[in-house]
Design a protein around this nucleic acid. Sequence first.
DNA 1: CATCACGCTGTTTTT
DNA 2: CAGCGTGATG
Length: 721
Amino acid sequence: MDRNGVDYAAVLNPAQLEAVLHLAGPALVIAGAGSGKTRTLIYRVARLVEEGIQPEKILLLTFTRKASQEMIERASSLADARCRFVSAGTFHSLALQILRQHAEALGLSNSFTILDRSDMEEIISSLVPEIEKPKSRTRFPKRNTIANILSKSANLQQSMEQFLKTEYVQFQDCLPQLQILERLYAEYKQEHQLMDFDDLIINLRSLLADNPDVRIQLSQQYSYLMVDEYQDTNSIQADIVRWLAHEHKNIMVVGDDSQSIYSFRGANYRNMFEFTDYFQDVKIIKLEENFRSSQPILSLTNGIMEQASEQFTKCLFTNRVGGERPRAIDTRTEPEQSMFITRYIKEKIREGQSLKDIAVLFRAGYHSFELEAELTRNGIKYMKYGGFKFLESAHIKDFLAHLRVVVNEDEAVSWMRILRLVKNVGLAKGKSIIKWMKDNHGPLGRLGDWPGIGKNLQGLTQLAELLSIFDSSDINNINPQEAFKRVMAYYAPILKEKYDDFPRRQKELDQLLQIAGRYKNIDNFLDDLVMEPPTSSKDLGFDKEEECLTLSTVHSAKGLEWPVVFIIWAMEGRFPSAKAYQNPLEMEEERRLMYVAATRAMDELILCYPSKESLPGWQYEIPYSQTGLSSFIRGLPGDILHYEKIGGARKNKESCFKLPASDYSLDTPGIMDFSQGERVRHPAFGPGVVSKIVGDKKIEVLFRNAGRKLLHIEYTTLEKI
DNA sequence: CATCACGCTGTTTTT
DNA sequence: CAGCGTGATG
């Protein structure tokens, strides 16, 4: 019993207690999924505070800001209110904060702008025309791929040559071009005072490595360090941790090698085991008792990890008894999968389960599109995490570009966006205007003086007027919301002109305006948007705590749990390019990804896979043995999973799901018939008319409201009206 | 030099 | 589906 009345021994098991009572010196906590890792961290923070350590001096590093905020909140409500003042954040936010203070030590201005992924890609694609592409027949990588290559090689600290040899063999003959691009991109960033996410980390490390005084100052400022999800750090971040703890060695890292799923950004779970090489007398604590899942679920997850070629640690166990075996359900096709899940959820609700208790997890954002349509048609509310970020949609980026040049008038990426929105200005004119502005420093008000301005460039004059408003007032005193409204007055007509579905986009901008209202200055507002972009409608704060289903990528679901979890997994095998399963390394990560997904489930786990491919455009069928899921479950002992098949053609009597055939079988004439001229409704595109029957499962529909008039649509996304 | 229509391709994950 | 390249048009 301690002074404040938290009886740690009563709320923690022995291993957790050991971690919580550890005060000074290095410690490595190996914490299996669901072993109360967060709980342990929380109580350890509380414990440190109760020991009299100033909360500000405790630094808690996590991978998402959301995770750190939640931890702090729980710590201050569960244990000690002073925990509210603990310093917490992500590696990136810490780096930003420190670099803004010490930029000059690195020869940078402290008003640098942060590039998000799409900014990065935009710069790259503007640089690509400057290089001569290889003459050979092989394709040059797309901008997304180039960005991946540059980012990952930077994070791995490998030379381009070495990197291509090991990771992108297919682009090896583009080596000279990629090297040039790498250099051009670096020069561009230097010239325009820009940093991408990788630069934040890399620059922080150099700062720490080269400046003992900064290091000492920081180790005084943060004298106790904790790092969550340590298996997801890359070697640069591990260096940062080492430097930060260099003076005092009060460092506790917590992680689980089986949950390392970020190798695409250079993360290496071996960091965990190298930790003991860099610090002496590391206390190692293993948390192996699982408090989350039923034993049958753990048998599955243990089984999955037993197939891994490298396993360092633990086998999870629980004291819980009972529970159903996880189910593997062959839903035959993707539409049937969506219908199955939707029906099942409805039944659960009828049984009294809350929607909040159910989650559907998947590999990539677009894997849930089909399901989303089905849920919408059935009126099931859901919140989706991960995948596409709404901040990356064109209208939001366009709008924010205007605000960005208000803060930083040299910001060429944003200028390009803005200018190209003006009628009759394209790539070439945009470039020449930017060059002109550079040569004549101080573009804001004087854009109207551009010599090329003429009667067909009326838009430029208006833009100049808008910007002159900002130019004349003190930028630091502009209230973000006010600035927002002014830009909106200018941008709204452009929005209407450009998008047929502008009301939706307008609404999203209005939501963004609400967020802007929470800030006192534009700078911070923009920084926060890049560093911690809202990833779901919930983050935007407009859907109040409504009870709804969770849809999430596995990556975004990390650290969370639900009583009932569905996993949708089978699509990987369908891509001709999905050679993942031939590459043992990627296969290993895929396995850990499945492990993370499965360990989210508390009571009920349902793996769904359509054994038959049915997407438009990808007509060929993939044998079940090649689908992603089956490669995980093939090697498992037969009694770990309960196998089932559903689907019209199979008429499986064992199926737990008996529906009238017409309700969900594509083979049965019924709701899936459409004929030419029929009126239909799509959940996203609204009403339309069937214009043509293209094939067995494909029709063409003419939509009035959609940006595009003609779309090939799958039957199941449509509703007859 | 900007823009538009058309056809082809290729699909991740996050700060 | 979007994002890119191409070729025609203004």
